[in-house]
């Protein structure tokens, strides 16, 4: 995942699809010192073929976001300053992906997606946005 600063960090993706509709869950976590930051994105989307491109598809949908930041000190005298805060937002998911299936049930997918979020009500009017850019390499099974 990249968040507008050209820095990429790894996470987990789970995909559940039915026909052209899918639910994809992304989880990213990082900790530094007493800070632990977790990012959860649930992308609800519909896939569509790109005309003339055999293996390329597009994906459009919505992406609710939950970000939690937890401050947790190990020393007992500092634990009074422990805090936890959560932020939510609802954005659009726009992406392209390449999917390859073998003769059996296995399928492989590489996806380049962006979850675009308005930066507040007034920020959204002025086209100010935040983005979670998601690169995913996944393997799965068609049931």
């Amino acid at each position: 995942m990249e968040e507008g600063d050209d820095r990429f960090r790894g996470g987990l993706n789970l995909h559940l699809g039915f026909n052209s509709y899918s639910a994809r869950y992304y989880y990213f976590m990082r900790s530094f010192g007493p800070v632990k930051e977790s990012t959860h994105v649930l992308a609800l989307s519909r896939s569509f073929p790109i005309p003339g491109m055999k293996f390329l598809w597009g994906r459009l949908g919505f992406a609710p976001l939950l970000e939690t930041t937890k401050l947790s000190y190990s020393k007992q005298e500092d634990q009074a300053f422990d805090t936890k805060e959560a932020q939510t937002n609802l954005g659009f998911l726009l992406g392209v992906f390449m999917q390859v299936t073998n003769s059996g049930p296995l399928s492989f997918q590489i996806a380049w997606e962006s979850a675009l979020y308005p930066a507040g009500l007034t920020g959204g009017i002025l086209l100010a946005t935040g983005r979670k850019q998601l690169f995913t390499l996944s393997a799965g099974m068609q049931l």
């Binding site: 968040e3 507008g4 600063d5 920020g123 002025l126 086209l127 935040g130």
Partner: peptide, 16 residues
Amino acid sequence: VGPASSGGGGPNPVSI
């Protein structure tokens, strides 16, 4: 016309 995110982090409102 519209703002670009150029790798500096954070949202960028369109200039007014």
